[in-house]
């Protein structure tokens, strides 16, 4: 019970600090700042637990049991933090499926024709910004107005080609 509530308490404490900070000013390096907040909270929290160890396991419990408890709380917390960061980074990039869903939802009970959906998305909505991102991240570069793949991009692609091969998925993603 302590593992569940301690993990949630630390997570929501971090989240509150994160939201309060973001409401004042959004930092330049957002993910790094989130990591700093979440790490500071868990380290402080675990230190407090270790100091007041009887809160978690009681005085007569073994050291092994304490280590397992601390590991379980940390693991629970780290998983919640990681998934939160994944979701947070996803907020920056507009997902095409969710963008379409937004258009369909806003059409209400009248519905929406495919021609209107085609008009709502242009190549500049999703593909253009991704090409720009690949160039900024040095996965691709522009040479004589042609875009070429760089070794970093090829390595990135190879990771996902490995997944495509392992799961026997189509090579044509997107």
């Amino acid at each position: 019970m302590n593992i569940f509530f301690s993990g949630l308490f630390f997570f929501f404490t971090s989240l509150m600090i994160h939201i309060a900070w973001w409401r004042i000013r959004i930092p330049k390096r957002e993910v790094l700042s989130i990591l700093i907040i979440f790490s500071a909270v868990i380290l402080t929290g675990l230190s407090a637990i270790l100091y007041f160890t009887d809160i978690i396991v009681g005085d007569n419990q073994s050291l092994v049991s304490s280590i397992i408890h601390i590991s379980h709380i940390s693991f629970f917390y780290i998983i919640m933090m990681t998934i939160y960061i994944v979701i947070y980074t996803g907020l920056e990039d507009e997902s095409p499926s969710l963008f379409l869903l937004l258009q369909i939802l806003n059409s209400g009970k009248d519905g929406i024709e495919i021609s209107k959906l085609y008009k709502s998305i242009t190549n500049d909505t999703f593909i253009g910004p991704r090409i720009k991102f690949l160039i900024e991240e040095e996965m691709a570069s522009v040479k004589d107005s042609r875009i070429i793949i760089l070794s970093k991009g090829q390595k990135f692609l190879n990771v996902f080609r490995f997944i495509q091969n392992t799961l026997k998925l189509s090579k044509i993603s997107g």
Partner: peptide, 20 residues
């Protein structure tokens, strides 16, 4: 690997070594 636009663009670029 299934639906990312970036992976698709990189895949197209990888198929064309002279660039696009």
């Amino acid at each position: 690997a299934v639906s990312a636009i970036r992976v698709r663009i990189l895949s197209e670029l990888s198929e064309n070594p002279v660039g696009m």
